[in-house]
């Protein structure tokens, strides 16, 4: 039995208002906003450039991985799911500490990287690797769900029409999974771009947007945070927001 439409609308409205309420914080009386343009744009550049690199790597690794997971045996799938979930459920601060230790100078990999002049903390490389660890699991889970939603009988029909597996992937699987993949990508984007806890530990420098927000809060208080926050929201949210809306509209069509 469904609730009456009026009750449903009241419930939706109440929850929607509650969810949107934090945005009211932007209008809080914190005094005159302080705009540090140089720091703001530098951190914006760091966040976007390095997140794009991290996500490109995540997509290159995660897409074939998710596709192969669709065809994996139940045992393989369970084992891999457990590991992927572990990475997704890992608290960000714990992830940062573990990455700092695992790639630090006390480990063989850390020493090897340092000997190759690849700094394992406070560098572009550490920033990108941290973002990859933070977002890969989200992308793989979303992409696997997207591939699994493609009906197997359509792929079989394409095979019976003479297409080899790679061409079936390109002409059937990928186009039919594209909206789900876009959703997975947008989740990974938000997760990587907004990562704070792990980045604070591994890559305080160069300052990305979340760290710059924290620095502004510490150094100058809320008046210096709010303009940067507006910039952050305006640049980080539209892409995943639109992608998700498109995906959902298509699903309900």
């Amino acid at each position: 039995m469904q609730p009456p439409a009026a009750v449903r609308r009241v419930l939706f409205t109440a929850v929607a208002l509650a969810l949107l309420y934090p945005l009211y914080g932007l209008f809080a009386p914190v005094g005159s906003w302080q705009w540090h343009g140089h720091h703001a744009f530098a951190s914006l550049r760091v966040s976007f450039a390095l997140t794009l690199v991290a996500l490109a790597i995540v997509v290159l690794i995660g897409t074939p991985l998710a596709w192969s997971l669709k065809h994996a045996s139940r045992k393989e799938r369970t084992a891999f799911d457990a590991i992927i979930l572990l990475s997704v459920l890992m608290p960000p601060l714990a992830l940062g500490l573990l990455l700092a230790l695992a790639f630090g100078p006390s480990t063989a990999i850390g020493r090897l990287l340092l000997s190759m002049n690849i700094p394992t903390s406070n560098s572009d490389a550490s920033f990108i690797v941290t973002q990859m660890y933070a977002s890969l699991g989200y992308y793989v889970i979303g992409a696997t769900a997207a591939f699994e939603a493609v009906p197997a009988d359509l792929e079989q029909s394409a095979a019976l029409l003479g297409l080899k597996p790679w061409r079936i992937f390109r002409r059937i699987t990928l186009p039919l999974a594209r909206l789900g993949l876009a959703g997975a990508l947008s989740l990974a984007w938000v997760r990587a771009l907004g990562e704070f806890g792990a980045i604070m530990v591994t890559s305080y420098y160069p300052h990305g947007m979340p760290v710059q927000l924290w620095v502004n809060l510490q150094d100058s208080g809320l008046p210096a945070v709010l303009p940067l926050l507006v910039l952050f929201l305006a640049t980080a949210l539209p892409l995943p927001w639109i992608l998700h809306l498109r995906m959902r509209r298509h699903r309900y069509a």
Binding site: P151, D153, L154, Q156, S157, A158, A159, L160, G162, L163, K164, P165, I172, P175, L176
Partner: peptide, 20 residues
């Protein structure tokens, strides 16, 4: 034998078109 190597025309009971 892999499906793509069988040169057949097959119409199943629930055959669907590629929706995109």
């Amino acid at each position: 034998c892999p499906l793509h190597q069988r040169r057949i025309g097959y119409l199943s009971q629930r055959e669907r078109l590629f929706p995109h």
